[in-house]
Structure formats: structure tokens, C-alpha cells
Computed example of a mutant assay.
Amino acid sequence: MTGYDVLRQQVEQGGGLLLTTMEVLRDAHGYGKLGVHVRKAIHDALAANGLGHLPQEMPTYQYEEVRLFRLGTPIADTINAVLHPSEGGDQVLRQSAGSEAQDVLKQIRQLVCE
């Protein structure tokens, strides 16, 4: 199992989103430094393994945080809708704002706050 397989598993276990550091990504790729070419190689390897990342530009320092997410998921669709505004993206945002999960969260807040 490669480092990227482990990362993909962790994203799945985290509900489609994983907070990690550039150090972890660098180590998964097998490099020692985070130069511009290494960051590009990490970006490409993540994409090849079905993973996207935020921020869009890979951070320079090993202790900086990165969020990983599965490409082709509702989370990825929402992120893309925010990063690349379009009419289709607006619809994705409207749908995510009106989802059943939002209704459940609202009900929980009402119960907790009463």
C-alpha cells in the first residue's frame, strides 16, 4: 500500500475530508524538501489518486496545513463551485445550502439552544 493509498483511506474515514500537513504529503511522496517541482509532483500525484487539495497552491513549508478531498464528490463539487464561479456552480451551492443535512443541523441547533 502506498502513501497515497493511506491518504485516500484517511480521507474516506474522515467523511470525505482530511486535514493534514505538507510534511505528511512530502513524506508520502518520498522527498526531503518542498521545492516548487516537488509541490507540483505532489499535486499531480494527488490528482492521479483521485484527491484534490486546498489551498489550491501547495504551501511551501512542511508544517502548513492542507485539506484533502475526494474528487468527484459533493464536497469537491462545492469547492469547485466556490473557486470557479459559474451558473452551474451557483446551482451546486444552492443545492448544498438546501440539503437535508442542513435541515438536520438546523434542528440540532434548535434543540441545543433551547
Results as ranks from 00 to 15, higher is better:
Pro55Ser: 13
Gln9Met: 04
Leu25Val: 04
Ala48Trp: 07
Gly3Gln: 05
Arg8Gly: 01
His53Asp: 11
Glu23Met: 08
Gly16Pro: 09
Glu57Arg: 15
Val11Cys: 10
Met22Cys: 15
Arg39Pro: 04
Leu19Gln: 06
Ala28Gly: 02
Gln9Phe: 01
Thr21Tyr: 03
Gly3Lys: 05
His43Gly: 08
Leu46Asp: 06
Gly15Met: 03
Leu54Glu: 15
Leu17Pro: 00
Met22Asp: 02
His53Asn: 15
Asn49Gly: 13
Gln56Cys: 11
Gly15Cys: 03
Met22Ile: 02
Gln10Asp: 12
Val11Gly: 06
Leu17Tyr: 03
Leu46Arg: 06
Gln10Pro: 00
Gln56His: 14
Gly3Ala: 04
Glu57Gln: 15
Arg8Gln: 11
Gly32Asn: 13
Leu54Val: 14
Asp5Lys: 13
Thr20Tyr: 05
Gly52Cys: 06
Thr20Glu: 07
Asn49Arg: 11
Ala45Val: 10
Met22Ala: 12
Ala41Trp: 01
Arg8Leu: 09
Gly35Asn: 15
Leu34Pro: 04
Met22His: 02
Val11Trp: 11
Leu25Glu: 07
Gly15Glu: 07
Asn49Thr: 10
Gly30Glu: 10
Asp44Ile: 09
Leu19Lys: 09
Gly3Glu: 05
Gly15Ala: 02
Met22Tyr: 01
Gly15Ser: 05
Gln10Val: 00
Arg8Thr: 10
Arg8Ser: 13
Gln9Lys: 07
Asp27Glu: 14
Leu25Ile: 04
Gly16Arg: 08
Gln10Glu: 15
Tyr4Met: 11
Ala48Phe: 07
Gln13Arg: 13
Gly35Met: 04
Ala28Phe: 01
Pro55Leu: 12
Gly16Asn: 08
His29Gly: 01
His29Pro: 02
Ile42Cys: 01
Gly35His: 07
Gly52Arg: 10
Glu12Pro: 00
Val24Asp: 08
Val6Gly: 01
Leu7Gly: 04
His37Met: 08
Gly30Arg: 09
Val24Tyr: 02
Lys40Glu: 15
Gly50Gln: 15
Arg26Glu: 08
Ala41Asp: 14
Gly35Ala: 03
His43Phe: 04
Leu18Cys: 05
Glu23Pro: 00
Gly14Glu: 10
Gln13Phe: 03
Lys40Thr: 11
Ala48Leu: 13
Gly35Arg: 06
Gly50Phe: 12
Asn49Leu: 07
Thr21Cys: 02
Arg8Met: 02
Leu19Cys: 03
Lys33Tyr: 12
His43Ile: 02
Leu19Ile: 00
Val6Met: 09
Ala47Ser: 10
Leu46Ser: 07
Gly50Leu: 12
Glu23Ala: 15
Pro55Gly: 11
Leu7Met: 05
Val36Trp: 00
Ala45Leu: 09
